[in-house]
Design a protein around this nucleic acid. Structure first.
Length: 416
RNA sequence: GUGGGCGUAGCCGAGAGGUUUAAGGCGCCAGGUUGUGGCCCUGGAGAACGAGGGUUCGAAUCCCUCCGCUCACCCCA
C-alpha cells in the first residue's frame, strides 16, 4: 500500500475549511495593505538558497531537498520563501517599479526534518516581502500586517517578540564580544554550542540547554552594540509600533535561523504555548540579501507564517470556521425517463447558478433521499413517472419536510 | 541525527498465549409492502490483527528486525 511520504499529508475535505479561511483572510489583508501576489517555482538553483540562507545554518546543512536533475543542474526544493521572491525581484528588474515593492506569496515549503506536532517536511507558508525601502515604518507595516492577520483570524493571547541584531557595520563588533564572552565559559557549553562558537556565534543565544541558557542571561546584548544608524532605526521602529498600538516585548535571545537577517527580527506566538515550535510566524529585515544575490543594494523586510500551524492553533482555540455551503438541491428520480429529465434539469439549474447534485444511481427513492439528507441540500427534487407525464417535479423542503408540485420549467423561479 | 510511546476493518476500539472460524460502536449497503430522508428495528459487506522472521503443540497476544505513526530534543513555520 502506498502512503503519503513521511512528513507530508493529504488535506482532506473536512480540513479544507480551515485552509480556505486562512488563505482568504490573508489575501484580504494583503489587498487592504496594497500587497500583490507573486508565485515562484517550487524549485530553484540550489545556490540561491545556500548563498542566502547561509552555509552554516541547519536548513542548508541538513534539511534541503536537493538533487541533480537530468541536465546536471543542482536543484533544491524551496526551503523558505524570501530568497525566491528576491531572486524574482532582481530577475524582473523590479527596482524600476515605485519602491517599496510589496509582494505576498502562499507556497509549499520543503525541509527534510523529523516530523512532529506542527512540523512537517512539506508545509505551507503565507508570507509578505516589502522590497526597496529601509524606513522603519515599513518594518512596522509588515509587523502590523502579521499581527492583524492573526487578530482577524480570531486568535487570542498573541505575543510579539522583537529584537535588533544590527547590520554589517555593527554586528562584527557585537559578535566579537559575544564570542569573547562565551569563550570565557567554553568549558560549560554544550557540545553543539562549542561547535557553534566558531561557526555561528549568534545561534548560541538560542540554545535551550540549561547551562547555556544560564550563561545567556549574562551574555552581551545585541541592542547595546548597535551603530548609531541601527540604534536610530530600532528606536523609530519601536515608536511606530507604539503608535500602532502593537504591544511587543524585547527578546535579546531572538536571532532567527537564517543568516540574511539584519536589524529587525521578530516572532509572534500564541500565549501559553510551551514547547519549541511556539511561533506561528516571524520575520525581519534583510538589507544585504538582494545585493548578495547579485542585485543592486536593496533593503527588504518581510515575514512568513505557517498555514498548518495556524490551523492547529485555530483548532486549539476553538475558533469557529465558516463552512462551505452545501448544494442547494439534490435531484432524485424513479425510472429511466425520469433520469433523463433529472439530468437535463440539473444542468439547467447549474446554468442558473443554483448548485445541484443529481443522484446518478439507480437506487431506491428512499436511498436517494437519504443521500440528499446527508448532502445537506436544502431541497430535494423528485421526478417520477407521473411528473414526467405532467412535466412537473416534486420540490421538497428538507428541513420543513414539506413538498409541493411545480412545473419543471419553473423550478429555478421556485427556488429563488 | 538522538530518545520515549504506539501500530487490530474507512474511523473509534475490546482482546494480553488456547471455545476468536477476532467483540462492540460509528460510518457504509440493503430491507421494515406499493414513489420519500433525518428517529427506531433487522440483516449484510468489510480486518487473518503494520511487514518479515523466530519461540511454542498452539500467537493479534512472547522475542527480534524492519517499516510506519506520534511526542520530545536539535531547529524551524
Amino acid at each position: 500500500m502506498y502512503q503519503a511520504p513521511r512528513g507530508t499529508s493529504d488535506i482532506l475535505p473536512p480540513e479544507q475549511g480551515y485552509w480556505s479561511y486562512i488563505k482568504q483572510t490573508a489575501a484580504a489583508i494583503c489587498d487592504l495593505y496594497g500587497y500583490q501576489r507573486i508565485d515562484t517555482p517550487a524549485f530553484e538553483d540550489a545556490r540561491l538558497f545556500v548563498r542566502s540562507i547561509g552555509e552554516d545554518t541547519d536548513i542548508v546543512e541538513k534539511e534541503m531537498y536537493s538533487f541533480e536533475d537530468k541536465g546536471g543542474d543542482q536543484i533544491t526544493l524551496r526551503p523558505e520563501g524570501t530568497a525566491p521572491v528576491c531572486r524574482a525581484y532582481v530577475e524582473h528588474g523590479m527596482h524600476n517599479l515605485p519602491q517599496p515593492v510589496r509582494l505576498y506569496y502562499m507556497a509549499a515549503i520543503f525541509r527534510y526534518e523529523r516530523p512532529q506536532a506542527g512540523r512537517y517536511r512539506e508545509h505551507h507558508q503565507f508570507g509578505v516581502e516589502a522590497l526597496g525601502d529601509a524606513d522603519p515604518a515599513l518594518d512596522a507595516e509588515v509587523i502590523d500586517m502579521a499581527w492583524q492577520l492573526y487578530v482577524n483570524l480570531g486568535l487570542k493571547g498573541l505575543t510579539l517578540s522583537l529584537n535588533s541584531i544590527g547590520c554589517s557595520n555593527c554586528r562584527p563588533r557585537y559578535l566579537e564580544s559575544l564570542k569573547a564572552y562565551y569563550t570565557q565559559h567554553k568549558e560549560s557549553l554544550c557540545p553543539d554550542c562549542k561547535r557553534r562558537l566558531a561557526k555561528n556565534t549568534l545561534r548560541l543565544l538560542d540554545c535551550k540547554n540549561p547551562t547555556c541558557l544560564a550563561l545567556t542571561e549574562q551574555a552581551p546584548r545585541s541592542i547595546d552594540y548597535l551603530c548609531p544608524e541601527c540604534a536610530d532605526h530600532f528606536d523609530r521602529l519601536r515608536s511606530y509600533l507604539n503608535l500602532l498600538n502593537l504591544p511587543f516585548s524585547l527578546s535579546h535571545r531572538l536571532v532567527r535561523g537564517l543568516d540574511y537577517y539584519t536589524r529587525t527580527v521578530f516572532e509572534i506566538a500564541p500565549e501559553g504555548e510551551t514547547g519549541s515550535q511556539v511561533a506561528i510566524g516571524g520575520g525581519g529585515r534583510y538589507d544585504n540579501l538582494i545585493e548578495q544575490l547579485g542585485g543592486k543594494p536593496t533593503p527588504g523586510v518581510g515575514f512568513g507564517t505557517g498555514i498548518e500551524r495556524l490551523a492547529l492553533n485555530l483548532k486549539k482555540q476553538d475558533v469557529a470556521i465558516p463552512n462551505s455551503p452545501p448544494p442547494t438541491v439534490f435531484v432524485a428520480y424513479l425510472g429511466k425517463e425520469a433520469k433523463d429529465e433529472a439530468m437535463k434539469l440539473t444542468s439547467r439549474l447549474r446554468k442558473s447558478r443554483i448548485s445541484a447534485i443529481a443522484s446518478l444511481s439507480e437506487r431506491s427513492l428512499k436511498a436517494q433521499l437519504k443521500q440528499a439528507n446527508i448532502s445537506g441540500a436544502r431541497y430535494a427534487i423528485i421526478i417520477g413517472e407521473d411528473e414526467v407525464k405532467s412535466k412537473t417535479v416534486v420540490l421538497r423542503n428538507m428541513a420543513k419536510g414539506e413538498q409541493q408540485t411545480v412545473p419543471i420549467d419553473k423550478v429555478a423561479e421556485a427556488l429563488r
